[in-house]
């Protein structure tokens, strides 16, 4: 049997990087399916690309500049209207930093 392209440990590490909580069943299925897809993608290795420049987009484009003119922006309330949780004019999120014992 061929060496697996991706291990369970790698699946867990990539899921952490991607900020995805996966169930154990999802992890196993993910490992199997990514293994198949990565094996297919491996056919790229057969191709000699020595000296070939990369293409990041097909239609060439350099920096696109515009005049720095003030324009109307959207009202704050409208921009906050879709937020799952808000506090006044802010998006509210769960705590980021551990509270120290003396802080209230």
């Amino acid at each position: 049997m061929a060496e697996p392209k991706i291990t369970m440990k790698e699946v867990e590490s990539v899921a952490r990087l991607a900020r995805l909580t996966l169930t154990d069943a999802e992890k196993e299925r993910m490992r199997r399916e990514l293994d198949g897809i990565l094996s297919y993608i491996d056919k790229l290795r057969a191709l000699d690309t020595e000296g070939v420049p990369p293409t990041s987009r097909a239609v060439p484009m350099t920096n696109v500049m515009r005049e720095d003119e003030p324009r109307d922006s959207f009202p704050q309330d409208l921009m906050l209207a879709n937020a799952p949780d808000r506090s006044g004019e802010f998006f509210r999120v769960p705590k980021i930093i551990e509270e120290s014992p003396e802080a209230s």
């Binding site: 990539v14 990087l17 900020r19 909580t21 999802e26 299925r29 999120v93 769960p94």
Partner: peptide
Amino acid sequence: RDLIDMYSRTRGAGFGAEVKRRVMLGTY
């Protein structure tokens, strides 16, 4: 528990199997 946990659980619950697969593949 915290912000990162909220991101991860929200994305784990909100994305379907194919989207998760491609996000994983791309991140990898």
